[in-house]
Every structure is written in C-alpha cells, then in structure tokens.
C-alpha cells in the first residue's frame, strides 16, 4: 500500500503536469467540438438541401474514421503535404473535430425530438425560421440533449489519452504515466494514479452534467 503513496509523492510533478496538459487539451477540444458541432447540426437541419448534404459529409467523414487514424494523418501526413502542424494543433484539431461530429448528431436528434407541430405552430404565428429555432425549438432541444452531450464529453476526456499514446506523443497524463512507468517499472502503482487522474476529470464533469440536468429538468 505504501508503494502507491511513494510513487505518487515521488512523481507528483510528472503526474500533475500531465493532468494539466490533459485538462488544457480537453477544454480546447471541447470548445472546438461545441462550436463546430453546433454549426454542423445547424447545417444538417437547415431547410436547404445542399447544406444538409455538406453537414452530412462532415459527420460521416469524422465519425467513421478512427481517432488514431485522424491523428496519424494530421501529425505525420500533413507535414509531408507541406502543411506544418505542431503537437497541440494536431491533438486539439483531431479530438475537437472528431467529437464535433458526434455532438452535431446529438444536437440534430435533440431538435428532431421536438414535435413537428411546434415548428408549424411557431411559423404559422408569424415567427421567422431563425426566431422559431432560437425561441421555441432550441430551448426544448437543449434539455433533451444534455445527457447525450454529457456522455460525449466523458468519451472525449477518455479519448484524449489517445493523443498522448499516439505518435503525437503530447505529454498528457497517459504519456507522463508511461514515462514514469518506464523509469520505475511500477506498473500497477503508476497506472492506478493515472486512472485516478482521469477519474478526477470525468467525475467532475459527471457532477456538472447532473447539475445541469436538474437545472433544466421539466417538473412533472
């Protein structure tokens, strides 16, 4: 038991710097994922055929290619094609754009979950399409997509480890843990603490999602 604490004490700088890198990676990727995801969802539900189509291509491309492959293409392929990209850019772009595809689908299904009658009612009352979206549909959709978005954010936090474990080798929590492991050989202790680090992040997010769910719940 004491070995567990010793490993943590001795390598706290590595673990905490790794955790900090993971946090920054996750936050930046989340911002990209939400922005791009919302835009793509808007394209998918817009009343314009070619926009739907464009959004569909985005979703299918990013949702159907493994994140690891995206990372290799971005980090190892793009520079060969003359596009310079560093570790952070590759990590954030891939994780963000990959997650955005899922978020777009979650948002789209949330909008479709709102009854068609609501749109028709709003439009027949003379509201414009954007206004109908903003005032009637999105508030109701937001409520239904919170649990789904929560799962996606949790998945994204866990997927962030792929950035550190891949050829990008960003010094995130996993990469640091592996370096400590190769220094000490104390596999169980080292990866126990790496797991604890990820749990800290995911459990915090879980609590936040619970709060949001309660905050927007429909009282029945």
């Amino acid at each position: 038991m004491s070995e567990f604490w010793e490993v943590l004490q001795e390598h706290l700088p590595e673990f905490s710097s790794g955790l900090w890198v993971t946090i920054r990676l996750v936050v930046a990727s989340f911002l990209i994922a939400m922005t791009v995801g919302t835009l793509v969802a808007a394209m998918r539900i817009a009343p314009l055929r070619w926009l739907n189509w464009l959004g569909g291509i985005y979703v299918e491309a990013f949702r159907n290619v493994p994140l690891l492959v995206l990372l290799i293409i971005a980090f190892s392929g793009l520079p060969r094609a003359g596009v310079p990209i560093d570790q952070w850019q590759a990590g954030i772009a891939c994780l963000g754009l990959y997650t955005a595809a899922y978020i777009a689908e979650a948002l789209r299904s949330g909008v479709f979950a709102v009854g068609k009658g609501q749109i028709e009612a709003a439009l027949s009352l003379g509201l414009t399409y954007p206004r109908t979206m903003r005032k009637i549909i999105l508030p109701q959709a937001a409520r239904t997509v919170i649990p789904a978005l929560g799962s996606l954010v949790l998945a994204m936090i866990k997927n962030s480890a792929i950035v550190g474990g891949s050829i990008v080798a960003l010094s995130d929590l996993l990469n640091q843990a592996r370096e400590v492991n190769s220094d000490t050989g104390q596999y169980n202790e080292v990866f126990f603490w790496a797991a604890v680090g990820f749990l800290l992040l995911t459990l915090t997010v879980t609590l936040l999602i619970r709060y949001l769910e309660r905050r927007f719940e429909i009282r029945r």
Binding site: S76, P79, R80, G165, I167, A169, N175, R178
Partner: peptide, 18 residues
C-alpha cells in the same frame, strides 16, 4: 523529448520533420 512506442514512429516523425 518525444517519447513514442516504436522506433519506426521516430523514423516517421523525423522524415515528416516533426
């Protein structure tokens, strides 16, 4: 330092200028 699993990945990275 960039620490990866395989030397073939280092080979790949130095070729790509990473």
């Amino acid at each position: 330092l960039r620490l990866v699993d395989l030397y073939s990945e280092c080979f790949d990275l130095v070729q790509a200028g990473q």
